[in-house]
């Protein structure tokens, strides 16, 4: 399928979740309304479909390549669950652009449940980008429930950039990671909810290997009557370093619950968590007003910057 054959709504979704204006370089799979509509492997990245889900194999030593696997739901009432597996070879350096956009203009709920398994080989470096977006004026809910399980082998590094800024009515995102010797996990999560949306983020990290490390930062903005829950659990099994931070701006009549937990199973485990929830301070707005911004402009600058 050529890019120009996508509907305008689908193009809009692809732009929002994967920054695509055309078919990308390298390997890719476009999944639209429950079907793979366009797929390509590269010489180093093999994209296959097995039991309806993707199996993506990245050859050892592959450097500076990317694979795009955006998902678009534009039919109301569609509910799907898909499992994708990534086998990342040793000594690679790759970027995975995942992401899902839902356009729902009908009265029935649309739901995507994506399960991603990342098997990351020794000394590999992976950047995993996942952006979620919803739009459409119907009464049906837009529901996204991603699960990502990462198995990070010795010396590897996985950086996850997770973003859900707009239009998703309900989400439960679950991320687990098992981090091996000298390996590292970095997570940067940004969540915004408004209206009556709900979002729950569960991040479970096991620092299994000696000198393993994790740095998890979640930033969230909850507006209107929305509800958010952040649950980060780091287990340190040996000599390791783990840091978890939840920073949330709460507005209007929203609710934010942060439940960070640390579990050190060794005296050599160094684990830290920070959680801060608060409104935008009046003095912050005033400072920006003294520069000529209106209150709305000041709030927007703070929120957009906070979630950048």
């Amino acid at each position: 399928m050529e890019f120009c054959e996508f509907s305008e709504v689908e193009k809009q979704m692809l732009k929002e979740v994967a920054g695509l204006y055309a078919v990308p370089e390298g390997a890719y799979n476009f999944r639209v309304n429950g079907k793979s509509v366009s797929r390509k492997s590269s010489s180093n990245i093999d994209v296959n479909i097995v039991d309806g889900g993707l199996v993506i194999n990245v050859k050892p030593g592959t450097k500076n390549e990317s694979v795009h696997i955006p998902v678009v739901l534009s039919k109301t009432g569609l509910k799907e669950t898909v499992k994708n597996t990534f086998n990342i070879g040793e000594n690679t350096d790759v970027v995975i652009i995942a992401g899902c956009g839902i356009y729902n203009c009908g009265e029935n709920n649309s739901e995507h449940n994506g399960v991603h398994i990342l098997n990351v080989g020794k000394n590999a470096k992976v950047k995993y980008v996942e952006k979620h977006y919803g739009t459409g004026g119907g009464g049906g809910a837009r529901i996204l429930n991603p699960t990502t399980n990462a198995y990070i082998e010795e010396g590897a590094e996985v950086e996850m950039d997770l973003e859900q800024i707009k239009g998703v009515d309900s989400t439960i995102r679950k991320t687990t990671a098992n981090v091996g010797k000298n390996a590292k996990l970095i997570i940067r999560e940004r969540l915004m909810t408004h209206g009556r949306q709900t979002a729950e983020s569960i991040i479970e990290t096991t620092l299994a290997g000696e000198n393993s490390a994790a740095d998890i930062v979640s930033r969230a903005v909850a507006q209107d009557l929305s509800r958010q829950k952040f649950n980060s659990h780091i287990v340190g099994e040996g000599k390791c370093r783990g840091h978890s931070e939840c920073d949330a701006i709460i507005m209007d009549k929203a609710q934010v619950l942060a439940e960070p937990a640390l579990d050190a199973k060794s005296i050599d485990a160094e684990l830290v968590h920070e959680a801060a929830i608060g409104k935008i301070a009046g003095e912050q707005i005033i400072k920006l007003e003294t520069l000529g911004l209106t209150k709305a402009e000041a709030e927007s600058l703070i929120i957009n910057g906070f979630l950048k």
């Binding site: 930033r219 912050q284 920006l288 520069l291 000529g292 600058l301 910057g305 950048k308």
Partner: peptide, 17 residues
């Protein structure tokens, strides 16, 4: 000075005009 998490020095100075 007021601390504003999320606002960078660049944001502040550009907002100043």
């Amino acid at each position: 000075p007021v601390k504003i998490k999320g606002v960078t020095v660049r944001d502040l100075l550009i907002s100043a005009g």
